[in-house]
Write a protein that binds this DNA or RNA. Sequence first.
DNA 1: ACAAGTTTTGACGTTTCGTCATATTCTCTC
DNA 2: GAGAGAATATGACGAAACGTCAAAACTTGT
Lengths: 260, 260
Amino acid sequence: MPNKDNNDPKSLTRKQRELFEREQLILDTAQHILQHEGLQSLTMDRVAAEVEYSKGTIYNHFNSKEEIISGIGCRCMNKLIAMFDRAKNYPGSHRERIAAVGIAHSLYAELHPVELQNMQLVKSSAVRKKVSAEKQQELLQLEQQVTGIVLQIIRDAMQQGDIPNDQAHLPDGIMLGLWSMGYGSNLLHISAIPFDQLGIKQPLEMMWINSHKLLDSYQWQPLSNTFDIHALKEKICNEIFAEEVSELKIIIESEKKNAR
Amino acid sequence: MPNKDNNDPKSLTRKQRELFEREQLILDTAQHILQHEGLQSLTMDRVAAEVEYSKGTIYNHFNSKEEIISGIGCRCMNKLIAMFDRAKNYPGSHRERIAAVGIAHSLYAELHPVELQNMQLVKSSAVRKKVSAEKQQELLQLEQQVTGIVLQIIRDAMQQGDIPNDQAHLPDGIMLGLWSMGYGSNLLHISAIPFDQLGIKQPLEMMWINSHKLLDSYQWQPLSNTFDIHALKEKICNEIFAEEVSELKIIIESEKKNAR
DNA sequence: ACAAGTTTTGACGTTTCGTCATATTCTCTC
DNA sequence: GAGAGAATATGACGAAACGTCAAAACTTGT
């Protein structure tokens, strides 16, 4: 290109930036297809056609389709971590902060069911086997960030005396309890089980209640019989996740319209 | 065939039996491949070769690969239900019976991690989309059997007065709490997260403790501070699941040998 | 302007799913 | 027991998708 007035000494960086941006474009495109048409429509030829590069170029960025799927998984984890971080920084009691993390988790599940399913897919051995060690390390590191946030809040609470120290399995027990219950509830939520028809409550609603019962069992002060957990939920939703909640309302509205 | 001394009037039934047996053979074979070589080795040609029928014949039984995978899923669910049933019939307190169900669930996860992953796969939309409505109905019905067993025990306990009736969300709350925590713990258990290395306890161990904490929160008598939950686990393992436990020991032994 | 290096391309080989016309086997009647 | 007609089994084939690689296009430095 003759136009060289941009005499930036970091031309190497420009190239790298282009590479990086293209990588993002590929992931954007793939994620969009995945979200709107499902995994069976996510083919390499399709992605190549939509980003308007050839398949070979796609393969210069990602060694396999699975690597793209993992890449999407990483982005989703980052989005989740951003929400968890906001929850962590909520200026309330430690019990309120951990509750905010729980709300972040279920809001994420409601807002991005497809991504959740994809994150599940990434963990399957079929995908993991074809993904580079680096990407796996990246995913593991992200997972650790998540547990790190939760553990930090629990440790803060212990240090502050909100949780009695004379119990076994701390802080792991609380972390694993919340993690497995949240994880399980989210997956039940996105499963095809028609809870309504079976006369069973929605998993995400019950998760909120059951998590508090679990925290009560660990005697995490203040206990839930001293405050209104539903009011707390409302409060946290308004103060930290207003944006997500309104997004969710829009989704629910449009689903209602589709049902009609 | 000239040899017709077997003058059974139900020759139709014999044919049906043959068909059924072949179907089982196909599923046996597919499950064996899946278990020992993973999903990527489970191809229709491979199954056809191993059962020594042509691919067309396989397709007379199952309309797609996904239908075979779902078929395997159904068998696994049935195996799980059989274990749950044994737990349900344990002649102890209701709290002991529900605890036995929990043990059944984690034993299953430890004994059959591959099947668990497969049952997860069946729930993915990619598979569900290609499966007949009947099979989906069958899967749903099996899932209901599972929840039915749990709900029955909870209702028994309520009727007997073991659980105070003055609480909201009964029996659903307990059921969903145990289900999501068990489900989540099992999936964490089979995930690739190296809990040991991260200095975190194993999800299945914590699930036992946290489930009891949850039941305590619902004030399900007798509360866990009045008995030794680890002794109870030992007792239930010996009295109902001796076979599974010894199977598990063999697996653990052989894994140790492989590690060396 | 040209050469050396880098990146892009898309045709191609391979695998695997699922189909279907043909071949085989079975069953029932005479 | 023979033969017609129905039921079942077969495997070659088409289609779709992954991943590769030699050749083409572009970039950069001299």
